[in-house]
């Protein structure tokens, strides 16, 4: 606890300890009070298996979409100088501060059956996003994309631009440099952004239910299932939360050793 710079001061240690307690205590309490005996029974239910599969599927697809769209946007924000860049960066962050339900309402007004884009789209093609798994993914992407963009943009900024210059002097086109230099150097940030996006998607509830609705097998994800169980079967809700918690933990721990240990 002490080194040549002096002891770690209590005014830092005490809040750090409080922060740890605040983060860990509720999770530990959940583990302690969960009806473990119901776990097997719960895991066997069709509803849980459907919701879990759908959660993993939509979170994973949404993370992929976030990467495909977020990496280029982060690159543009970090590397291209254009008027309105600061404004665009601010706009990208806005979904972070929106209450999830508001995010859902915003999505409805754009892509809903009566939305600005949703209505003409439905009229022209008969397709609409609400009540579909694609709608769930769109909601997840909407709330997760800011994490990916912010995280990758930070990584691109700290992965110094001089390396791009070095690549250019060696004859690399911008796209070649992007693939062979920019992305590899930003990899820790990209991985962190994707993990954040995946975790955010897995826990997403408000925007999903407001925009895509709730139907088992199509749009019902774990958080919705848990929320609905709280009213009728509080014990079951705890067990379901436990399953979601363990699932997220397993993925985060598996990823941590591989991706999150940044040099």
């Amino acid at each position: 606890m002490s080194d040549s710079l002096g002891r770690a001061p209590a005014r830092l240690l005490v809040p750090a300890g409080l922060a740890t307690l605040l983060l860990v205590l509720p999770l530990v309490s959940l583990l302690l009070t969960a009806p473990w005996s119901m776990l097997g029974e719960q895991l066997g239910t069709e509803a849980l298996r459907q919701a879990m599969w759908l959660s993993v599927l939509t979170a994973t697809v949404a993370t992929g979409v976030c990467l495909l769209l977020g990496l280029p946007l982060a690159w543009v924000l970090a590397r291209v100088d254009f008027p309105g860049r600061r404004l665009l960066r601010t706009l990208v962050i806005v979904p972070l501060v929106l209450p999830p339900v508001v995010a859902g309402v915003a999505l409805v007004s754009a892509f809903g059956r009566t939305g600005i884009i949703g209505e003409p789209l439905r009229a022209a093609t008969g397709l609409s996003l609400p009540y579909t798994t694609a709608g769930v993914i769109v909601a997840h992407v909407f709330v997760s994309l800011p994490f990916v963009v912010i995280s990758i943009e930070g990584a691109l900024r700290s992965a110094h631009q001089e390396y791009d210059a070095a690549a250019a002097t060696l004859g690399a086109s911008r796209w070649h440099a992007f693939r062979t230099v920019t992305v590899p150097l930003a990899l820790p940030g990209i991985a962190a952004g994707m993990v954040l996006a995946w975790a955010r998607s897995l826990g997403e509830f408000g925007a999903t239910i407001t925009f895509a609705g709730n139907y088992p097998g199509t749009t019902q994800t774990m958080p919705t299932l848990i929320y609905l169980s709280i009213n009728s079967h509080p014990e079951a809700a705890k067990t379901l939360s436990l399953v979601l918690l363990l699932l997220s933990l397993a993925v985060l721990v598996a990823l941590r050793d591989r991706w999150l240990v940044t040099s």
């Binding site: 210059a165 070095a166 250019a168 002097t169 060696l170 004859g171 690399a172 086109s173």
Partner: peptide, 8 residues
């Protein structure tokens, strides 16, 4: 830059 045929 990339077409200037330089070594840096």
């Amino acid at each position: 830059t990339r077409e200037r045929g330089l070594g840096v």
